[in-house]
Amino acid sequence: MLLNSVILILQETLEAALLIAVLLAINTQLRCGHRWLWYGLSMGTVIAFIFASNMGSISESFDYAGQELLNALLQSMICILVAMAVWLITGLKQFQLTDWQGYSQRFAQLCSVIIMLAVIREGQEIILYLSGFLGSSEHIQTVLIGSSIGFGIGASIGILLFYALLGLPTGWKKPTLLVLLALFAGTMLSQSAVQLTQVDWIKQTAPLWDSSGLLAEESMLGELLYALIGYEARPTAAQMIAYATGIGLVCLAAFSGTQYKKHHPANQPTEVAK
C-alpha cells in the first residue's frame, strides 16, 4: 500500500512538477516574480476539489464520455495557452526584460492559468485516490505517508530540472526552454487524442509501433519521459498527428512572435538594469 501510494502520487505529481519547473525557469529569466505560481496552484486545487466531488455526474454526462471530454478540453486548452505564452516571449532581443508593453505581466498571467489547468487535471485524481482511504483507519496513515513521499520525490525532480535549466549556458537556455514547451504542448494534444479515442470520438487504429520491449512506459525512465516529452510505447496515428500539431502550433507561435516583434521595433523592451 505504501509503495503503491508513492508511485501513484509520483506519477500524478511529476508532469505538473516538470511543467512548473520549465515555466518557473522562464519567469525567473524574465524576472516576472513568482506570485503567478501560487495563484495557479491554489485556484487549480480548489477547482480540482469541485470536479473531484462531482466526478460521478461528470463521468456519466455525454453518454459516459464526460470525464474524457473534460480531460481533453483541459489538455487542449493547456496546449493553446502554451503556444500563446511562446508567442509573447519569442523575438525579444534580450531574454531578460522589464515590463514590455505589459507582456511580462501577461506572460505571468498565462502561466498562472496553465498551472491552474494542469493542477485541475492531475489534482482531481489525487483527491479521488486519497478520498477512498478517508474512512479506512487501517490504511489512511500508510497512504498519507506514501503520498507525501511520492509528492516529495516529484517536487524534488521538478526542483532539479529548474536548477539544471537555469544552469545551462546562456545560448542554450532559451532554445532548450522553447523546445521543452513545444514537446509539452505536443504531449498535451496527444493525450487529449487518447482521451477521445477511449470514448470512441476518435476511431481506434492499431498502434504505429510497440517499443515497450525497448522502454516500458511503466519503468522509471518510461514514466519520466512520459511526463517530460510524452513518451508512449504504443502510439496510434491520431496521437502522432495530435503530437505533431501541438509542436507545430508552438513553432508557428514562435515564428509569428518573432516576426511581429521584428516589424514593431519601437516596441522592443528595455534591458533590465543590473
Binding site: M55, Q124, L128, Q198, A216, E217, A233
Partner: peptide, 10 residues
C-alpha cells in the same frame, strides 16, 4: 498500458 486506457471510476 497494453490497451492504452486509463479511467477513474468513482
Amino acid at each position: 498500458y497494453e490497451l492504452n486506457r486509463e479511467k477513474v471510476i468513482v
